[in-house]
Simulated assay, not measured.
Amino acid sequence: MKINLKRIDEDYHFELKNERGHVTYIDSKAAVGGHDLAPSPMEYVLMGVAGCSSIDIISILKKQRQEITSYNVEVIGHREKVGDATPFQLIEVIVYLEGTIAPAKAKKAAQLSFEKYCSVSKTLEPTATIAFKVVVNKEEV
């Protein structure tokens, strides 16, 4: 896996491209000298958690023939100062599903993702606690 980064302006706006040619951008908030034209690197970390776990959860539920009509995830990152950095200490994930879905299957799919399959979560596991909740048809399971 390889990513190339190219600086776009004189500050912190960057273009990133993967080996398959997909392009995205990173910037920083104006408060720290950026132009706020794209998500920050730490926001991309949270997006990675959301995307990776979602691929797992949907894949598991599809194999179990669960019918998902709506799928949304909210990820909240809590950071604490450690030396000069502010890494995530806690990442809260709330998975919202709607459809003909057995609540126990949805909860198990999320548990398998966060505890076994999601490479992003497993990468963060040594330094951040990842807590998750599953809500099926507006009821937490």
Rank of each mutant, 00 (worst) to 15 (best):
M1E: 05
M1T: 00
K6Y: 15
R7A: 11
E10G: 03
E10M: 01
H13Y: 15
E15D: 08
N18P: 08
E19S: 12
R20G: 11
G21V: 00
G21H: 05
H22Q: 07
H22C: 07
V23M: 01
T24S: 08
I26C: 04
A30T: 13
A30K: 15
A31G: 10
A31R: 14
G33C: 06
D36F: 04
D36R: 01
L37K: 06
A38G: 08
P39N: 11
S40D: 11
S40W: 09
S40M: 14
E43I: 01
Y44N: 03
V45I: 06
L46K: 06
M47E: 06
V49N: 09
V49T: 04
A50L: 14
S53T: 10
S54G: 15
S54M: 07
I57P: 11
L61E: 14
K62Q: 14
R65Q: 05
R65Y: 06
R65I: 00
E67C: 01
E67M: 05
I68E: 13
I68W: 13
S70P: 07
N72H: 07
N72D: 10
N72Q: 08
V73R: 02
V75H: 01
H78P: 10
E80I: 05
V82Q: 14
V82S: 13
G83K: 03
A85I: 03
A85P: 07
T86R: 15
T86Y: 15
L90G: 03
V95I: 08
V95N: 09
E98T: 02
G99A: 03
I101E: 06
I101A: 03
